[in-house]
């Protein structure tokens, strides 16, 4: 090791020499400040003190920082041998090899599938919702504006006539909210579906989740958006949610499984290689 560590000798090690210059400098500086609230004379003494400290400090590190050589402590005071027997490590579930794991639940769907599923679900869901708007309410813009009203104060207080008209802000807000949520839910499907009881993924993704989600919204809608609460048609709402769930779940379910990257190091996952060569086991 010694060649890597220029400060270590066979039986001693170089350490920086203890010095009082830092405390003198710090004390001087504090006196400078203390003088501002008492008497400028104190500041004067303080600045002299700080100057002396700074000069002394300078001589300490110039041209090379001062060191003193400290001997190692006696052998019996040194660190004890680390106990190597160690303790056994419990194995994973019977039948599984080893005792270490990065937990993976079933198949791993690629995240791209989640994004795609979310987007496809978003489109289908929008079609169902707009169809409801057009057929039942006579306006394709109503469902869009209703969604936007959750976040847009202008639409939240608008009358029914205004809600049925085209609104540029409403469209933008609705599209952003709709796409963000859909993609997030799509991603959630890729990670959560494999954790649920196998073979029934479509029930979970297509029916159960949308119904739970709808129930959550139904119970809190008065607070989330009074406007939406007033106008929403729950049949159409649940229908569009289920359509989303089915489409998104289907796309995720059909995707090819990929190897997980989770055993990779941070640097490798980020695509930058740090100092050590890759040693994937």
């Amino acid at each position: 090791m010694s060649q890597d560590d220029p400060h270590a000798h066979n039986d001693a090690v170089d350490l920086p020499t203890p010095t009082a210059w830092p405390i003198i400098t710090a004390f001087g500086l504090t006196l400078v400040f203390f003088g501002l609230v008492t008497n400028l004379f104190v500041s004067l003494i303080g600045s002299l003190c700080a100057l002396v400290g700074a000069i002394g400090w300078f001589t300490d590190v110039f041209p090379h920082p001062k060191h003193e050589t400290v001997p190692y402590v006696p052998v019996d005071e040194r660190v004890k041998e680390i106990c190597r027997e160690g303790r056994e490590v419990t194995h994973l579930n019977p039948g599984e090899e080893g005792h270490r794991e990065h937990v993976v639940f079933g198949a791993v769907h690629p995240y791209s599938a989640g994004v795609m599923g979310g987007l496809a679900g978003a489109v289908v869901m929008a079609i169902v919702a707009c169809a409801w708007g057009l057929l039942a309410q006579g306006s394709i813009w109503l469902p869009i504006n209703l969604l936007a009203a959750v976040g847009d104060p202008g639409l939240a207080n608008a009358s029914m006539e205004v809600m049925k008209q085209f609104s540029f802000v409403g469209l933008i807000v609705a599209v952003i909210v709709h796409l963000t949520t859909s993609v997030l839910v799509g991603l959630l499907y890729t990670v959560l579906l494999p954790m649920l009881p196998a073979k029934r993924e479509w029930i979970w993704g297509g029916i159960v989740t949308p119904i739970i989600w709808s129930a959550l919204i139904w119970s809190t809608i008065r607070f989330i958006s009074p406007t939406l609460a007033e106008h929403v048609n729950w049949m159409a709402f649940v229908a569009s949610q289920i359509v989303f769930g089915l489409v998104c779940g289907f796309i995720v379910y059909r995707s090819t499984n990929v190897a997980t990257q989770q055993t990779w190091s941070v640097s490798r996952r980020l695509g930058v290689e740090a100092q050590r060569p890759n040693k994937k086991s």
Binding site: D4, Q275, R276, P277, N278, K279
Partner: peptide, 10 residues
């Protein structure tokens, strides 16, 4: 020592 760890440490 694992393989590939002999690289100089900078």
């Amino acid at each position: 020592v694992p393989e590939g760890e002999e690289a100089p440490w900078r």
